[in-house]
Write a protein that binds this DNA or RNA. Structure first.
Lengths: 102, 102
DNA sequence: TCGCTTGTTAGATGATCGTCGAACAATCCA
DNA sequence: TGGATTGTTCGACGATCATCTAACAAGCGA
C-alpha cells in the first residue's frame, strides 16, 4: 500500500482545513472523531459508498485534520487535535461548537 | 438593481461560511474588512477582474459573512461580526487569527 | 440628456469536485 | 495456498466552481 502523506504541523494550510470542513460528510466524520476518538474507517455509518468515504478520508488527511495509521487490515483515523490547536488556536474548537448547534 | 438577498442570523449555515472562507481571494476580502471596516467594492486591490470580484462578493454575502448596502453608485461591504459571533461564537475570531499567521 | 463611473449579469471555458462501480492491493486466517 | 475482509485506486459521470470578456443597469454630474 502506498505511503500516506499528511502535512507536518507547520505545513497545515488554513484554506485546506476550511475547505475540508465545508463538506457535510467530512464534517460529520470530524465530529464523530472529536466525540469518540480514534476509530477504524469502516465504523463510520454514513450514507455513501466506501469509495467515496475513502476519498473524503484522503481529503481530511491531506488537509492535516486527521492522522491515519494502519493496523493489520484496518485503518484507524484520529483527529490531529494537538497539531491543529497549536497551529490554529481555537479554530477546531469553535468549528465543533458551531457544528453542534448548526 | 435586483434585491440583494442575505441570510438572517439564524439561517447562516456553517458549511457555507467555511466554504466561503476557504477561497484565498474571499479570505483576503474578509481580512481587509476585519482590519479596516466597511469599504466600497472598488477599493479592494486584488489580482482579478471586477466581474470575478463581484462573484466573490456574492458568495460572501449569501453565506452570511458580509452585509452590503448601496449608496449612490457605490456598494459598501462590511463584516457581519455581531451576527457571526452570536451564531458561531469564536469562529470568525479564530479564523482571522489563523489567517494572520498562515 | 449625455457621458462617466460603479458594479452586476450573461454566457462561455477549463478545472475541480463528489459520487459511483469495478478492479486492485494488503492483511489475516483456516 | 486460497478465500475473506478492509480499504484504496481507476475511470467515468454530471455538477459546480473560478475566471474571463462583453453587455447591461443604475446613479451622478455637467
Amino acid at each position: 500500500m502506498r505511503a500516506l502523506h499528511q502535512p507536518k504541523r507547520d505545513q497545515i494550510q488554513l484554506a485546506a482545513v476550511l475547505y475540508a470542513l465545508s463538506d457535510p460528510t467530512r464534517l460529520a466524520v470530524v465530529r464523530q472523531l472529536a466525540a469518540e476518538g480514534e476509530r477504524a474507517c469502516g465504523t463510520f455509518e454514513l450514507p455513501t459508498t466506501k469509495a467515496t468515504l475513502s476519498h473524503h478520508f484522503k481529503v481530511l488527511r491531506e488537509s492535516g485534520l486527521t492522522h491515519t495509521r494502519s493496523e493489520g487490515v484496518y485503518r484507524f483515523i484520529s483527529l490531529r487535535r494537538e497539531d491543529l490547536d497549536a497551529r490554529f488556536p481555537g479554530l477546531l474548537t469553535s468549528v465543533l461548537k458551531a457544528a453542534r448547534k448548526a
